[in-house]
Amino acid sequence: MDNTVVSTETEGKTWGGGNKPLNASYGKMMMWFFIVSDALTFSGFLAAYGFSRFKFIDSWPIADEVFTHVPFYHGELPMVYVAFMTFVLIISSVTMVLAVDAGHEMKKAKVTFYLLLTIIFGAVFVGSQAWEWSTFIKGDYGAVQTNGGNILQFVNAEDEHQVALRDFVVADHDGRIAHEGKNGLWYQSEDTQPTYTIEEVIKGLESHDNVLVRTQIINEEGEKTILSREESLKQLKDNGKIVVEGANLHVNEYGTPLFADFFFFITGFHGFHVFSGVMINIIILFNVILGTYERRKSYEMVEKVGLYWHFVDLVWVFIFTFFYLV
């Protein structure tokens, strides 16, 4: 009987409200729940990326050779732009934590200022990612896909640097016009046609002695294998199937289609998180300006969205490593 009485008393205390298990308020606790589950989602994606990479460990594209572009700069600076993006996101995390700190001191003007900066940096990041996507989709060298789905790229024999299709292939066909629904059977249409046909690429390779084919296979030095002149021609003639320019979900000029799929999926999902974060921050910014938290006498809401924002930064740190560095 004693026991029953005791437990009833505790129950009253526990469920009566205002209780803070683990010293964290309800909102913060729920944000941590969400963050852990979202972290597991991202881990699932990155692990799947790892799976595909281990599966194609000898032929996976080398990230340094794919992400080499910087806006307003012609030429190649591998990684620099991604490093810049990482830095922007870390800075935005710093301004966010400064906003949270100012919130603890109940300084409305400071919170507003830092939150605004966070939003701006977030927007810069999303913009950068959009630019990176468009560059990736457009591609710049072009390649040939074989019957087996492998990618053959072209390099200069002297410096072993990649050569774009437009530098050695001449388009001498009138251009087969892509079939659109309006021109025939309305339920049938096809994708955009590549600039060159496979025959033109073969002709181009034949007439340029200094161009060689580079396969996907990574050799012992950690570089892609470059074939000899005869092998190049043989490989292209025997196996070449379609000309690929840029990237989409089916094919990409950088290597295995999975690489582009994961790029779109993982950075896309992360970009969506950043975008949502910016939107949430904007809503909170309005609340700050309107004085909602001043009246509530607590800026805890800023702290909660701050947690989410830092989490987005945290995920990017991992994506940066596993997509661009390793």
């Binding site: 010293n23 964290a24 995390s93 710093v94 966010m96 934590v97 701050g306 830092h310 930064d313 945290l314």
Partner: peptide, 15 residues
């Protein structure tokens, strides 16, 4: 990032 930006350092050990 977790310990200082997300204030994990200031949370209870259990959390």
């Amino acid at each position: 990032i977790t310990w200082d930006f997300m204030h994990m350092r200031d949370e209870t050990k259990t959390l």
